[in-house]
Design a binder for these strands. Structure first.
Length: 281
DNA sequence: CTGTAATCCTGCGAGC
DNA sequence: TGCTCGCAGGATTACA
């Protein structure tokens, strides 16, 4: 579910609720997540104060006093929230961390179980894991570097935007929205974008992510932030999930096709397909 | 290097 | 009403 704006919203919501509080222990459910919680980690979180909570790409990093870090990924349906301890535990809650004086606990809930919760004992170990998977954050990128990253391949633009090792944090929704703002078809070969289009794309990616964060992310089905609030940005989508509805710019019907294995929404008038090679005559 | 499909899961809406 | 099918904010792996 969650892309960068949703993950950022969770982190911002949780920051005042977690930082400075101690984790008292951990309770793990029977069903396995992508990464199973290791029993050896129990002692590593016990009575550890949370010193910081950060985001990198779509990952949530919860730093502990010891120098270890809890690394959380929300997958498609993950939720990370602080609840009163006495509040009923919802279905699909897989990991719980009682906090502070025991009146509250941090709960990880994930219907589809594509998410994960893991512990890294040192920063170098954590950095190695993340660096192998993530390119730079999409904000404040040097235009020349952005251009290099995007145009280094013949893959489709959509595939490149979704590739976390190129730019971290963009997912299916915001890739489509950024392509729309750029006026480029998501199936366009990345190396064929003009310098102007690449620059427009850089700005569009930043703009759509920033606006979405301001709107506390998008809730399509079950996303909620760290305090349980839904997002609002879904009301501002130009193309995502708007198949058949009018393009906000030109009123042509929004279309959907599969690109890079994902449904990709676009306006055929505002985002024309690359011209086919015409036969020489 | 590409693209595609399958895989990990559960739930929900569309269509019959 | 009840069933099956396909699809869903992600990431990884196998294979052509």
């Amino acid at each position: 579910m969650p892309e960068l704006p949703e993950v950022e919203t969770v982190v911002r919501d949780l920051r005042p609720l977690l930082v400075g509080k101690a984790i008292r222990g951990v309770a793990v459910g029977a069903r396995k997540l992508r990464q199973a919680w290791l029993p050896a980690w129990d002692a590593k979180v016990q009575n550890q104060k949370v010193t910081a909570i950060r985001r990198r790409g779509k990952w949530i990093l919860i730093d502990l006093k010891s120098g270890a870090t809890l690394l959380v990924h929300l997958g498609m349906t993950g939720q990370l929230r602080v609840h009163p301890m006495k509040e009923e535990v919802e279905d699909h809650t897989h990991v719980r961390f009682p906090l502070g004086d025991g009146k509250q606990e941090l709960r990880f809930r994930d219907i589809r179980r594509f998410g994960s919760v893991a512990l890294f004992e040192s920063q170098p170990e954590l950095d190695a894991f993340l660096d192998a998977r993530l390119g730079p954050e999409p904000f404040g990128l040097d235009p020349a570097l952005f251009r290099e990253l995007i145009t280094a391949t013949t893959r489709t633009l959509k595939a490149v935007l979704l590739d976390q090792t190129v730019i971290a944090g963009v997912g299916n929704i915001y890739a489509d929205e950024a392509c729309f703002l750029t006026g480029v078809h998501p199936g366009r070969r990345a190396n064929t974008l003009t310098a102007e289009q690449v620059e427009k794309l850089r700005v569009a990616v930043e703009r759509v992510l920033t606006s979405a964060i301001a709107g506390r992310g998008s809730t399509i089905r079950n996303y909620v932030g760290g305090s349980g609030l839904k997002g609002t940005y879904q009301a501002r989508f130009n193309v995502y999930g708007r198949t058949g509805e009018p393009c906000p710019t030109c009123a042509a019907a929004v279309r959907v096709v599969t690109i890079a294995g994902r449904s990709s929404h676009f306006c055929a008038a505002c985002q024309p397909e690359a011209k086919k090679k015409s036969k020489p005559r």
